[in-house]
Simulated scan of single mutants.
Amino acid sequence: MKAAAELPPLREVIRAHGLTASKALGQNFLFDEQLLDRIAAIPGDLSGCAVLEIGPGPGGLTRALLRAGARVTAIEMDRRCLPALAELGEAFPGRLRVVEGDAMKLNHAELMAEPFAVVANLPYNVGTPLLTGWLGGEQWPPRWTSLTLMFQEEVARRIAAKPDTPAYGRLAVLGQWRSTAKLAMKVHRSAFTPPPKVMSAIVHIEPAPMPEGVSAAVLERLTAAAFGQRRKMLRQSLKSLPGAIEALEALGIEPTRRAETLQVGDFVAVARELTN
């Protein structure tokens, strides 16, 4: 059994287990331990905290989370990585639980017995659907206490975007109507093995009070319709949503505006009208 301080460099772990990043699983490995420690520090003090990690791969970020004092539950569907993670669990006895499976098919709240932070270098092919799952639903506040997630930089900017900017859209509203979302760190493509074609960035999201009288499902339908035809005026994009045009008029919002000109609070107000 290796003590935590005696763990071999990540590149040696990869080589010893014959691991290569799987394009099909959207894998890109991070080896820079200092960078990984900086990512693990974004949520704040994790000492004794429950953390959920998606797609740990050979365990680079997992190491950093364990060094930060977290108790980590890691969901991994690539069986090739399980032996490397088992070795990491031996180095941090009782602090790492590995769940083999598809994070898209598991109930994360049921998996975690207590409130938990999510910290993950998300595989690019599942990042957005996982995020919308965490942000959705009527139950609020959620079981998670924060989300610290790595995305392609373009997606990260869309989550933290402000109105009247090219990146502003449905993800920004969903990420900000009852949460705070900020771009926490950029990560250069050269930091990964193999380097992806695009730059990456980390978004940090924390729950905020939920506006009263608003259904999350209604808001999701509203934003899907409004931004589904974002170049069109609201009177066109929302005509398929019963009551939406009347709600705009009741709130004094011109139906000739386009979705990207509305503040997050405007979408909340329209959703409240539709909910009621």
Rank of each mutant, 00 (worst) to 15 (best):
L96T: 01
L96I: 01
R97N: 09
V98C: 04
E100C: 09
E100T: 07
G101N: 07
G101V: 02
G101A: 06
D102Y: 10
A103E: 12
A103L: 08
A103W: 04
K105I: 00
K105N: 12
N107H: 09
H108W: 15
H108E: 02
H108L: 14
A109Q: 06
L111I: 04
M112E: 10
A113Q: 11
A113C: 01
E114I: 02
E114W: 12
E114M: 05
P115L: 08
P115S: 11
V118W: 06
V118F: 05
V118T: 14
L122G: 04
L122D: 03
P123L: 08
P123E: 05
P123D: 12
Y124I: 01
Y124W: 14
N125Q: 15
N125H: 15
T128Y: 11
L130D: 03
L131F: 10
L131A: 04
G133P: 00
G133Q: 09
W134C: 10
W134P: 10
G136T: 01
G136S: 11
G137K: 02
G137I: 03
G137L: 06
G137P: 12
G137Q: 03
E138D: 13
Q139N: 13
W140M: 08
P141N: 11
P142N: 11
P142R: 10
R143D: 04
T145P: 01
T145G: 10
T145H: 03
S146H: 11
S146I: 00
L147A: 09
L147H: 04
M150I: 03
F151K: 03
Q152E: 13
E153V: 01
E153M: 11
E154F: 12
A156V: 06
A156D: 12
R157Y: 05
R158N: 05
A161M: 12
K162R: 15
D164M: 13
P166F: 03
P166D: 06
Y168T: 03
Y168H: 08
G169N: 05
G169D: 12
R170T: 00
R170C: 07
L171H: 07
L171R: 08
L171K: 00
A172G: 14
A172M: 04
V173M: 07
G175A: 15
Q176C: 09
Q176L: 06
R178V: 01
S179M: 10
T180D: 14
K182F: 00
L183R: 13
L183N: 08
A184K: 07
A184H: 03
M185P: 04
K186T: 14
K186S: 14
K186L: 08
V187H: 11
H188P: 06
S190C: 02
S190K: 15
F192R: 07
T193Q: 13
T193W: 13
P194C: 10
P195T: 01
P195N: 00
P196K: 02
P196H: 04
P196I: 00
P196R: 02
H204Y: 11
H204K: 12
P207Q: 12
E212R: 11
E212C: 04
E212S: 15
G213C: 06
G213W: 10
V214C: 09
V214A: 03
S215Y: 12
A216L: 00
V218R: 07
V218S: 01
E220V: 02
E220F: 15
R221Y: 04
T223W: 12
F227R: 09
G228W: 03
G228M: 09
Q229E: 10
R230S: 13
R230T: 08
R230I: 02
R231I: 01
R231K: 14
R231H: 07
K232Y: 05
M233C: 08
